[in-house]
Amino acid sequence: AGDTALSDARILLMLNMVTAEDLVDDQEYSDIYEDIKDECAQYGEVEDLRIPRPVKKDKSKWGEGGSQAALDYQRQDEAAGVGRVYVKYKDADSANRALKALAGRSFAGRSIVATVLSEDSQTSPPLH
């Protein structure tokens, strides 16, 4: 890939940072959101930050066929990208600065795996 492919890569994708369980509680979710926003803003202007949350689980369906329901939820969560964190910067330089600074940093005891994506990449994030 040439430089042109990288110049529009302004979305930082971080993995191994949050788990579905961390994001269920509203207070915990907003704490995590603020934590990430504050830190990411140090590397450039952030246009958008998305932390996909798990679907609300309807435990009443967990009686008969409950394990099927649990599997469906898990599939939905995976399709929605739960567990990933997307940060869209104003420009690619900021995204690269953030990548260098944050890949390998620990967040709640987990080492962050990170990459930068362009908007038309196949790993299309839920960003607008």
């Binding site: 704490d31 995590i32 390998g104």
Partner: peptide
């Protein structure tokens, strides 16, 4: 609010954390 960020980087040898996508 307690920050979840750790200060140091802790790389595991052989397992890079900055990935070219």
């Amino acid at each position: 609010r307690r920050s979840r960020w750790g200060d140091a980087k802790t790389e595991i040898p052989g397992l890079p954390t900055a990935i070219a996508a």
